[in-house]
Design a binder for these strands. Structure first.
Length: 564
RNA sequence: GCGCCCGUAGCGCAGCUGGAUAGCGCGAUAGACUCCGACUCUAUAGGUCGCAGGUUCGACUCCUGUCGGGCGCACCA
């Protein structure tokens, strides 16, 4: 839970405020209130470890040139109580701070003592959050959107756990409504075709054309024979769905497990229809006066809650819409199961539903801002620089299954978390399987394996890593070492920021940069063969890097091999 | 037509609530292991941040307009 950058910033913050007080007393600065300023790690590290913009921010209020203010503050700065050893004025009026060697030692000590929990924080304070993701239609195989959503949602969940939330991963099974009717009709057609021929039985135009439907129909026929050919159509369809749907759900489950995703809850839409929650929700909307009838259908006046148009809740044929069920579902998440916050990962093509669903939450008395929707843009697969749309094997859209045949799970999970959700993602199939530095997954894993190699090498010579003193860690003064340690120190806020913005892509970028910093260190500094204290300090630094790489890869559920 | 998202180097992308000379990877070019794994590293080249205004001490970042691309506007889910 230690964030050494923040504690360094806090200390410098008060030092600056105190220095300004002294400046006012000396008449160097006017007794005006100072606007809020920030201290941050500058992009260009030749500008020190931390930089404060206080002088520029207050220039207007003080009616003084920023550099003059910065110089006044700096000359009155008392750094002895802070973690900085030096401050200087630079550029337009920045005050740049250089952290003391003891601070760098403290970072390594924190990484070593906190172990796998290093980087975690208590942003969530144990509040209960649900992440619902993938929720693929159980009528067929999962597509690329589901693949991206799976990697994104699962890593987002890990991230939130690390940030102190009690997270539930949930899959919503759409086992009711229109698409199940379509599913039934498709199965029925394939089943009857088996006995009467494809010409005799037309396939429904908007049915599911996938091979998987035919397979299920065949399995069913093998099991039950032709007993349903002359049966009542409704009974026939019911039997087919009763057979096929659970198997499809099992298939989803096992495919996702291969993808290293395990859900806490598989929630069935049909539950909402069967136990009355759906009708109760509609009653609440009716009682609230948010509904009206038009052309035989029951409408929800979504426009009252900021939507651009109203929505049908119950069709003229008496069937509730998906939207109605979705309102009931989210009511269930908040009211029945008591989640403090709910996050849904959706494809960007559903963005129109965001405002409607949040508005509906407000209508039924739940604060819609407790519901967050993470929208993700589409994935574009490329091979040899060309866009790939279809699977070579099936000729259909590429499924998660197809993808994992070509690409290792490690690469898939990493690549899907390389870009923030709300940007288009290009997935280079050649690169994902390439075992070279171009492939970021291998690059990161290689850094981890390389550290293990160093360790094993030294141990083979009888050199065991031992605990270092803070004094010994101050031997690590090379720029590459300082940079590496600073990057280790950045993990807690990277996690906090990523959790706040629901953006696991920050983790992949962080760990790539960490690997880069390590490789640079490796190429300029040696561990083996140095004087014992320095060697041990560097060895411990390596161990810190190794553990943090593993720590981050664990969150992404990507393996961290000791040898490749 | 209305709404949401995206335009940063040849390509793929960072740039965190506005901050210093706009970065990274690939590709190109030139280099580095008798030395802990060359699955690595170093250097060079490459940019009017789509365009035009505005706000600000300061704009890739905020506002307005505009052009280009993606998506959505069902008694589908």
């Amino acid at each position: 839970m230690l964030n050494l950058i923040n504690s360094a910033i806090d200390g410098l913050n008060t030092a600056i405020v105190e220095a300004m007080g002294r400046c006012v007393a000396q008449g160097l600065l006017p007794a005006e209130p100072c606007p809020a300023f920030t201290i941050e790690v500058p992009a260009d590290r030749s500008h020190g470890d931390l930089a404060a913009n206080v002088a520029m921010i207050s220039a207007r209020a003080f009616r003084l040139a920023p550099r003059k203010i910065a110089e006044a503050i700096t000359s009155n700065l008392e750094l002895s109580g802070t973690m900085a050893s030096r401050a200087e004025v630079a550029g337009p009026g920045f005050i740049n701070f250089f952290l003391a060697p003891q601070w760098y030692s403290a970072v390594l000590e924190a990484v070593l003592s906190e172990g796998p929990s290093y980087g975690s924080c208590d942003l969530g304070r144990g509040s209960r959050v649900m992440v619902e993701f993938v929720s693929a239609n159980p009528t067929g195989p999962m597509h690329m959107g589901n693949a991206r959503g799976g990697a994104l949602g699962d890593c987002l969940a890990s991230l939130l756990e690390k940030a102190g939330y009690a997270v539930t991963r949930e899959f919503y099974i759409n086992d009711a409504g229109n698409q199940i009717d379509k599913f039934a009709l498709s199965l029925e057609a394939r089943y009857l075709q088996l006995f009467r021929g494809e010409e005799a039985i037309p396939f429904p135009e908007d049915g599911y054309h996938g091979e998987d439907i035919t397979t299920r129909a065949r399995e069913f026929a093998a099991l039950r024979g032709d007993t349903f050919v002359d049966a009542e159509p409704a009974a026939r369809r019911e039997a087919l769905v009763e057979y096929a749907l659970p198997r499809n759900v099992e298939k989803l489950c096992s495919d996702l497990e291969k993808y290293r995703i395990r859900y806490d809850v598989w929630f069935k839409e049909s539950q909402l229809h069967n136990d009355g929650e759906l009708s109760e929700t509609i009653r609440i909307l009716k009682d609230g006066g948010f509904t009206y009838e038009k052309e035989g259908a029951l409408w929800y006046a979504a426009t009252n809650f900021g939507a651009d148009k109203d929505e049908v809740l119950i069709r003229a044929n008496g069937n509730p819409t998906y939207f109605a069920a979705d309102i009931a579902y989210h009511r269930n998440k908040f009211l029945v199961r008591g989640f403090d916050r709910v996050i849904n990962v959706w494809g960007a093509d559903h963005h129109g539903h965001v405002a409607r669903l949040k508005g509906a939450m407000n209508a039924i008395g739940i604060d819609g801002s407790r519901l967050d929707i993470v929208l993700m843009q589409l994935v574009r697969l490329t091979r040899n620089g060309e866009i790939v749309r279809m699977s070579k094997r099936t000729g259909k859209a590429i499924s998660l299954d197809d993808l994992l045949e070509d690409v290792p799970v490690d690469a898939a999970r990493f690549f899907f978390n390389l870009r923030e959700a709300n940007s288009h993602l290009e997935f280079d199939l050649d690169l994902a399987v390439e075992q070279s530095a171009k492939n970021p997954v291998y690059y990161v894993q290689y850094a981890h394996a390389r550290i293990w190699s160093i360790l094993k090498n030294l141990m083979a010579e009888g050199i065991m890593p031992r605990k270092c003193t803070g004094e010994e860690f101050t031997l690590l003064t090379a720029p590459e070492e300082r940079e590496l340690i600073m990057h280790l120190a950045l993990l807690p806020q990277t996690i906090a920021e990523a959790a706040k913005t629901y953006d696991p892509a920050r983790l992949t970028r962080y760990v790539i940069e960490l690997a880069t910093n390590f490789h640079k260190f490796y190429n300029t500094q040696r561990v083996k063969g140095e004087e014992e204290p320095l060697m041990q300090a560097r060895l411990n630094l390596c161990i810190c890097v190794r553990d943090v790489i593993k720590n981050v890869l664990d969150m992404l559920k990507i393996t961290a091999p000791e040898r490749m």
